[in-house]
Design a protein around this nucleic acid. Structure first.
Length: 556
RNA sequence: UGACCUAUGGUGUAAUGGUAACACAACUGUUUUUGGUACAGUCUUUCUAGGUUCGAAUCCUGGUAGGUCAACCA
C-alpha cells in the first residue's frame, strides 16, 4: 500500500519526538497504564490505553501495566482480573505487570528519607483542623504547630510507631513540609502517609499505613524508570508535587504530561457513578451491554478494532471535549460491515401466505453470507408457502415514497421471489392478521426471467422452519447529552427504556450461532449472541442499528 | 476574588509565522436484490480588542468564556 500523507502528530508524540531528537534517556521510551483496581475499565480508559501503548509501540518503547493500589479499602482482585482481561482484549501487551503495592517497602524508605532531610513531619491534627489550617485558594494556609516543633528524631520515632500499628486510624499522618502559602493547594504540606487498618488485596495485613497517591505515583514511575507518565488534565496541579517528590528524593526524573479525558455524549465515564449503576441495579452488572465499560461494549458486540479506531479518530489534545457517540457507532458499523455474516431475522412479524405456492413445498434458496467479503460463501434458507415479514414492511395505504409491500404492490423477497399483495385479512377489531400474496414464479433470485423490476427488497423467514430468539434491544442509557453537567442526581437522567426485550423469528441457520461472531440481521442492524444463550434458547444483543435513511424520511 | 489549564464549522481533530483542512453529523444525488455498503457532491469554521510582523489560527498583552484545585480518594 502506498504511504499515505504522513499523519500529523498529537502533542504527546511531538514531545516524544523532541525528546528523541535530543537523545533524552538514550532514546528509551517507557510509558505505563496505571489503573486503580476499584472498578471496571471504560471507554475513557480505552483512550488512555491506546495512547500509552500506542506511542510506546510507535517509538519502539514499552508499556507497563501498573495497578495503583494504595487504597486497600476500595480495591479488589476481581477488578485486577477484569482490567487485565480488558487490556488484552483491546489488543495490547504490557511489558510488565506491576503494582504500586510492590513498592510499599521502598516507598516507606522514601518517607524516612524525607523525614531525615527535614522535609516531612508527623502531624497529630484532626482532619478538620488541617482543613481549616489549609486555607482557601485565595487565602494562604497557616503552619501546623507540629510542623516545626518536632525534631527529625521525634518524627522518625512517631512515623515508625505509625507503621508498627501503635496509633489508631485518623490520629496521625505524615506530611510533606513544603509551603502552606503556595497558590497550589496541593503544595500546602500534603499528607503523604495515612494510617488505615485494612486488609490489602495483595499485601494483606502487612501494612497499617499506606502512601497517598501523590507519594506513590511519581515514585512508582521513577522506580520503573518510566520516561513519559501520561495522565489526564485533572492531574495538572499534581505535577508540581510530582516533580517536588522526585526532586527531593533525587531519583529518576520521570516526567508527567496531561491530556484531556474523553467525554462521550449520552454516557458517563465516572467509575464512581458507574459503580452506583451496578450496585443500585439500574443495569445488570459492569458488563451490561448498555454500559460504556470495555466489558459492556464487548458483550454488546463492539469490536476491539472498532474501539481502537475510535480512539485514534478522536485525537489527543488538552481541550475539554464531548465526543458524539455517533462517531463510536460509525466506527463499530464500519468494522462490522466488513466482517458480519448476513442473516435474516424478523423482529416484529406478520404472516404472509403465498396463495399460489404449493402447500407443503419447501424450497432451499441460496443466500450470500456477506456481499463485502466474497470469500464468505453462502448458506441455504428454506422458503415455503407461509412466511413471516416485518410488520412495518407493509403499509395498507402506502405513501408515494414507500416502496415496500402494499395492497396491490410488489416487493422482492431477498434471495427469493417477487410477491404481490392481493388481499389483507383482518380480525374483528380491524387488526391485520395476515396478508395474502401471490408470487411470480420465474422471478427467483439468480434466475429471474420475469423482467419485472421492483424498487423494494425485504427480508423474511419461513414460518415453520423459523426459530424463536430473545432479542435485547438497547437504547442510550441517558436521556441527556451530557449527564455529568446536569444539576442534581445523575440517575434522574437515566433513560428507563434503554432495554427492550422481544422475541424474534430468525432463520434456522442461526441455531448454530456462536459467541463472538458478529451478525447482521439484514436491514435491521448488527447483533451478536449473548452468553445467556442456552442450547434451547437463543439470546441476541443488538450491537448497533444500520444507518436508516428511511426512518428519517418516514418521521418527516 | 488566587493559581493553573484551555479556546478553530453542529461535534472532534489538524495546519508547528506563509492558500484554514480532515473525519463524524446533517443534507443532495448516483449505484444497489439490505432505504445498508460504495461513489459523487453540498453545508458550516480561527472567542474578543489591541500589539509584533512583509505576513498571525499560530507569537505578545488585556478582556471574555469554559475547566481544574481547598479527600487521611486515585
Amino acid at each position: 500500500m502506498a504511504e499515505a500523507t504522513e499523519k500529523p502528530l498529537n502533542f504527546i508524540e511531538q514531545i516524544i519526538e523532541d525528546d528523541l531528537a535530543k537523545g533524552k534517556n538514550d532514546g528509551r521510551i517507557l510509558t505505563r497504564f496505571p489503573p486503580e483496581p476499584n472498578g471496571y475499565l471504560h471507554i475513557g480508559h480505552a483512550k488512555s490505553i491506546c495512547l500509552n501503548f500506542g506511542v510506546a509501540q510507535k517509538y519502539g518503547g514499552k508499556t507497563n501495566l501498573r495497578f495503583d493500589d494504595t487504597n486497600p479499602v476500595t480495591e479488589e482482585t476481581e477488578y485486577v482480573e477484569s482490567i487485565k482481561a480488558d487490556v488484552k482484549w483491546l489488543g495490547f501487551e504490557w511489558a510488565e505487570e506491576l503494582y504500586a503495592s510492590d513498592y510499599f517497602d521502598q516507598l516507606y524508605e522514601f518517607a524516612l528519607n524525607l523525614i531525615k532531610k527535614g522535609l516531612a513531619y508527623v502531624d497529630d491534627s484532626t482532619s478538620e483542623e488541617m482543613a481549616v489550617m489549609k486555607g482557601t485558594p485565595t487565602v494562604a494556609g497557616i503552619n501546623s504547630s507540629y510542623r516545626d516543633e518536632r525534631s527529625i528524631e521525634e518524627n522518625l520515632d512517631l512515623f515508625t510507631r505509625m507503621r508498627n500499628g501503635e496509633f489508631t486510624e485518623g490520629t496521625r499522618v505524615l506530611r510533606a513540609k513544603i509551603n502552606m502559602a503556595s497558590t497550589n493547594m496541593l503544595m500546602r504540606d500534603p499528607i503523604i502517609y495515612r494510617i488505615k487498618i485494612a486488609t490489602h488485596h495483595r499485601t494483606g495485613d502487612k501494612w497499617c499505613i499506606y502512601p497517598m497517591y501523590d507519594f506513590a505515583h511519581g515514585q512508582s514511575d521513577s522506580i520503573e524508570q518510566v520516561t513519559h507518565s501520561i495522565c489526564t488534565l485533572e492531574f495538572v496541579p499534581h505535577r508540581e508535587l510530582y516533580d517536588w517528590c522526585i526532586g527531593s528524593l533525587e531519583i529518576f526524573p520521570s516526567k508527567q504530561y496531561e491530556f484531556a479525558r474523553l467525554n462521550l455524549s449520552y454516557a458517563i465515564t465516572s467509575k464512581r457513578k458507574l459503580l452506583k449503576l451496578v450496585t443500585d441495579n439500574f443495569v445488570n452488572g459492569w458488563d451490561d451491554p448498555r454500559m460504556p465499560t470495555i466489558s459492556g461494549m464487548r458483550r454488546r458486540g463492539y469490536t476491539a478494532q472498532a474501539i481502537r479506531e475510535f480512539c485514534d479518530r478522536i485525537g489527543i489534545a488538552k481541550r475539554d471535549n464531548l465526543i458524539d457517540v455517533s462517531l463510536l457507532e460509525f466506527c463499530v458499523r464500519e468494522h462490522l460491515n466488513k466482517i458480519a455474516t448476513r442473516v435474516m431475522a424478523v423482529l416484529d412479524p406478520i404472516k404472509v401466505v403465498i396463495t399460489n405456492y404449493p402447500k407443503g413445498q419447501v424450497e432451499e434458496l441460496k443466500a450470500e453470507n456477506n456481499p463485502e467479503d466474497h470469500e464468505s460463501g453462502s448458506r441455504i434458507m428454506p422458503f415455503s408457502r407461509e412466511i413471516l415479514i416485518e410488520k412495518d414492511d407493509f403499509m395498507e395505504n402506502p405513501t408515494k415514497k414507500y416502496f415496500r409491500l402494499g395492497l396491490g404492490l410488489m416487493v422482492r423477497l431477498k434471495n427469493a421471489y417477487i410477491i404481490k399483495c392481493d388481499d389483507i385479512v383482518k380480525d374483528e377489531n380491524g387488526e391485520i392478521i395476515e396478508l395474502h400474496c401471490s408470487y411470480i414464479e420465474n422471478s427467483r433470485s439468480g434466475n429471474d426471467t420475469s423482467g419485472i423490476n421492483v424498487k423494494g427488497t425485504i427480508h423474511w423467514v419461513s414460518e415453520t422452519q423459523a426459530v424463536d430468539a430473545e432479542v435485547r434491544l438497547y437504547d442510550r442509557l441517558f436521556k441527556v447529552e451530557d449527564p455529568s453537567r446536569e444539576d442534581g442526581d445523575f440517575k434522574e437522567y437515566l433513560n428507563l427504556e434503554s432495554l427492550q426485550v422481544i422475541t424474534a423469528k430468525v432463520e434456522p441457520a442461526l441455531k448454530n450461532a456462536t459467541l463472538n461472531t458478529p451478525y447482521q440481521f439484514l436491514r435491521k442492524g448488527y447483533f451478536c449472541l449473548d452468553a445467556d444463550s442456552t442450547a434451547d434458547k437463543l439470546v441476541f444483543n443488538k450491537t448497533v442499528g444500520l444507518k436508516d435513511t428511511w426512518a428519517k424520511e418516514a418521521s418527516k
